[in-house]
């Protein structure tokens, strides 16, 4: 493998890890406060992408033309807002209903919610793939030794790194973080101390939704959004969750990176076995360290 090819794969691994991180960290945050693995979470990623595609093609291009800032910032902002509203209105009541009702019930209910969302997307936006790659091309390409690499992907990696730092601060250094970690560790003791658990749960859901919505909006310009994307990302994020371990910040980072590394690797060398490779890695982790590489320590 040439040096430039290796650099390209390394950057692609980071790019893909960024998207996965934005989903896995949200799954972990919701699991932290509710002890529910929310399978419907990946639909918020898809909703972010749909929203970005829709707002870009219907308004931004018409109103702002090819303004780079509008092309990049507005889809992100809109996607975050729409995702949070949908999450509070549609996901939160279901999570509240499923809370404390057992793993099997929660998995079935949240997967059902995923299917409902997928249907809603098709009713609203149709079955044909939607794309809006203006931002991707507007940012152009940079030299990577003897190749070209899209600046947009570098921007996504940088932006997600920035988001990860903010998320770390919110969880480990902010006022919210203290209460969030206490609730995630011991909800019973937290409520005995008089912590308002309901409020912490709502804030955690908002945070997780924003991350997923931004993820979808960041993903859209390099691909397109179509029915089934939720499921595709759910499977990959779920493998990331297993590998990284449930319920920690480090686990989200590690899981996203490992999944992305093996996915990029298998797409290059054995594309037909992409999912097989991922599941094999997950199985190996489960055999050697069942709580996941970064898991078991809590937030």
């Amino acid at each position: 493998m040439s040096l430039s090819l290796a650099a390209l794969y390394a950057l692609d691994t980071l790019f893909y890890a960024s998207l996965i991180f934005l989903i896995v960290s949200g799954l972990n945050i919701i699991y932290g406060v509710l002890r529910i693995v929310n399978l419907a979470h990946a639909t918020l990623f898809a909703l972010g992408a749909y929203t970005a595609a829709w707002i870009t093609s219907t308004y931004i291009v018409k109103v702002f033309g090819d303004s780079l800032i509008a092309l990049i910032a507005l889809p992100l902002l809109t996607a975050a807002i729409v995702t949070v509203i949908a999450s509070l209105a549609l996901v939160m009541p279901i999570l509240a209903y499923a809370h404390g009702k057992g793993d099997a019930f929660q998995l079935i209910v949240t997967f059902g919610l995923l299917l409902v969302f997928e249907e809603l997307f098709q009713i609203i936006w149709g079955r044909a793939p939607l794309a809006a790659n203006q931002a991707y091309f507007a940012l152009g390409f940079m030299d990577l030794i003897d190749r070209k690499y899209p600046v947009y992907k570098i921007m996504v990696i940088t932006f997600t790194g920035f988001l990860a730092v903010i998320l770390w601060y919110m969880i480990y250094r902010s006022r919210f973080g203290l209460v969030f970690r206490a609730v995630a560790m011991d909800p019973e003791m937290s409520s005995a101390l008089g912590v308002n658990i309901g409020r912490v749960v709502v804030m955690a859901i908002i945070l997780a939704s924003v991350l997923a919505g931004l993820g979808g909006a960041l993903y859209l310009p390099v691909a397109s959004i179509a029915p089934g994307v939720s499921l595709e990302f759910l499977i990959i994020a779920f493998v990331g969750l297993v590998i990284g371990g449930l319920g920690s910040f480090a686990g989200s980072l590690i899981g996203a990176f490992v999944v992305s590394f093996f996915r990029t690797f298998s797409i290059i060398f054995i594309p037909e076995l992409e999912l097989v490779v991922l599941f094999a890695v997950a199985a190996l982790v489960l055999l050697v360290k069942p709580e996941g590489i970064g898991g078991g320590k809590g937030w």
């Binding site: 902010s174 006022r175 209460v179 101390l193 008089g194 912590v195 809590g298």
Partner: peptide
């Protein structure tokens, strides 16, 4: 999983019913 100071802070914070701002530092 919390430090000694965090353990004490969470108890005081919940009694004082203080806000849980995501952007303000501890």
């Amino acid at each position: 999983g919390l430090t000694v100071l965090e353990n004490l802070s969470i108890a005081v914070a919940s009694r004082l019913k203080v806000n849980t701002n995501m952007f303000k530092s501890l």
